[in-house]
C-alpha cells in the first residue's frame, strides 16, 4: 500500500515536472524579449511559485524510513545481497522487504555456491530445506526454483558444479537475457551433461561472457557462439587442453574476442602463437601456469606486447612427462 501511494506521488511529480518544463520554455521565450534576466520577472516568479508548491505538496516532511524506501531503490540493494540472504533472510525482515524480494529484478545476478549438495557439510540446499520445511529438495529442483524467481530477467548466472542436462535445458528456455554464464566442472567427474551445451547456445543471443570448467566440446561450443551471440567478448576455460583444433577454432570463430582466460591449460607454444596472431583485439589474456611453453618466451612476449593485460607467469615446458606418467601409474 505504501508503494501505491508513493507511486502516485511520483506520477504526480512527473506530471508536475512536465508542466514546469512546458511553462519554463514559455518563460524563456518570453525572456528572449527582455534585455536581461531578472528575478522580478513575473512569469519566472510564477514558475517558481508553482515549483515550490509542487515540491512541498509531493514530499512528506517526515523523515523517510527504510521500510518504505522507494521500491526500486530497495530492490537495487536487495539484488546485491547474494543468494543465501535473498532466499533465507530478506523475505522475513518485514512486509515491504518480503514484497521487494519477490521482484524479478532482485534475481538478475545469480551466483550459486559451487557445491550445493554435499553429504559431509551443510550447504545452501540444507538451509533452504530447513527454513522452508521442505523434504528432499533435489539439486535440480532447487536451481530451477531460484532461476524461476528471475522470470526471464537473469543476466548473470553462475551454476554449481556439474549441472544436469535437465537444468541446462531449463536455463536455455528460461534465461533468454543471459549475458554472462559460468559452468564450472568437477574435475573428478566427467562432464557429460556439457555435450548438450552446443545445442543450447543459440538460445542466448545476448551472451557476452562464458566460463567453462573444461574444454570438452569447446570447438562445437565456439562454433555455435559465432552463429548466435553477436556481442560475445570473453571466454574462460579452466583446465583446458588447447590443441591446434581448439586454437584454430578460437581464431576462426572469435577473431574479435577481447578477453581470454586459459589459466592452467595444456597448450603448446605453436597453439598459443596461433591465438596471439589471430586474435588482434585481445585486451586481456591470462595464460598463467600453463604447460607447453615457457613464460619468458621472446616470441610470445613480442606478440603479446600490445595486449593491455597479458599474464603468463608460472607457465613452463611440459618436461615432466615422465614424472607425470609415474604419477598416473601410481594411481
Amino acid at each position: 500500500m505504501f508503494f501505491t501511494l508513493r507511486t502516485s506521488a511520483f506520477n504526480f511529480l512527473s506530471i508536475g515536472y512536465t508542466i514546469l518544463i512546458l511553462s519554463s520554455t514559455l518563460a524563456l521565450r518570453f525572456l528572449e524579449f527582455q534585455p536581461s534576466e531578472s528575478h522580478d520577472d513575473p512569469v519566472q516568479v510564477n514558475v517558481l511559485r508553482l515549483k515550490w508548491h509542487l515540491n512541498l505538496d509531493c514530499v512528506e516532511m517526515e523523515e523517510r524510513k527504510w521500510e518504505d524506501l522507494e521500491f526500486d531503490c530497495l530492490v537495487n540493494v536487495l539484488g546485491r545481497v547474494g543468494m543465501e540472504s535473498l532466499l533465507l533472510h530478506v523475505p522475513f525482515v518485514c512486509r515491504s522487504w518480503h514484497e521487494a524480494s519477490r521482484s524479478p529484478s532482485c534475481w538478475k545476478h545469480l551466483v550459486f555456491p559451487q557445491d550445493i549438495h554435499l553429504t559431509w557439510d551443510v550447504t545452501l540446499i540444507d538451509k533452504f530445506e530447513d527454513y522452508y520445511e521442505i523434504h528432499n529438495c533435489s539439486e535440480d529442483a532447487f536451481i530451477k526454483f531460484v532461476v524461476g524467481r528471475s522470470h526471464g530477467n537473469c543476466t548473470v548466472l553462475s551454476l554449481p558444479n556439474d549441472c544436469s542436462e535437465e537444468v541446462l535445458k531449463y536455463i536455455a528456455d528460461k534465461c533468454p537475457a543471459l549475458i554472462s554464464l559460468s559452468l564450472p566442472a568437477d574435475h573428478f567427474l566427467s562432464s557429460e551433461s556439457l555435450s548438450i551445451l552446443p545445442t543450447l547456445i543459440g538460445k542466448w543471443e545476448h551472451l557476452e561472457n562464458l566460463w567453462l570448467g573444461s574444454s570438452d566440446y569447446l570447438v562445437n561450443i565456439i562454433t555455435e557462439i559465432t552463429l548466435a551471440c553477436s556481442k560475445f567478448s570473453g571466454l574462460s576455460v579452466s583446465s583446458a587442453t588447447i590443441r591446434e583444433e581448439e586454437a584454430s577454432a578460437i581464431v576462426t570463430n572469435l577473431p574479435n574476442i577481447k578477453s581470454l582466460i586459459l589459466r592452467g591449460a595444456r597448450m603448446d607454444l605453436e597453439n598459443l602463437v596461433i591465438i596471439l596472431q589471430g586474435c588482434k583485439n585481445l585486451v586481456h589474456l591470462d595464460v598463467r601456469d600453463c604447460r607447453g611453453f615457457i613464460s619468458d618466451d621472446e616470441r610470445v612476449l613480442e606478440l603479446a606486447s600490445n595486449i593491455k593485460t597479458f599474464m603468463c607467469e608460472g607457465s613452463m615446458l611440459d618436461d615432466d612427462e615422465d614424472n607425470h606418467q609415474c604419477f598416473v601409474n601410481e594411481y
Binding site: I21, E37, Q44, K51
Partner: peptide
Amino acid sequence: EDSPSTDTVPLPN
C-alpha cells in the same frame, strides 16, 4: 533547469 534564477533549494527530505 526549470528555475535558473533560484538561489536556495530546500531539500525537505
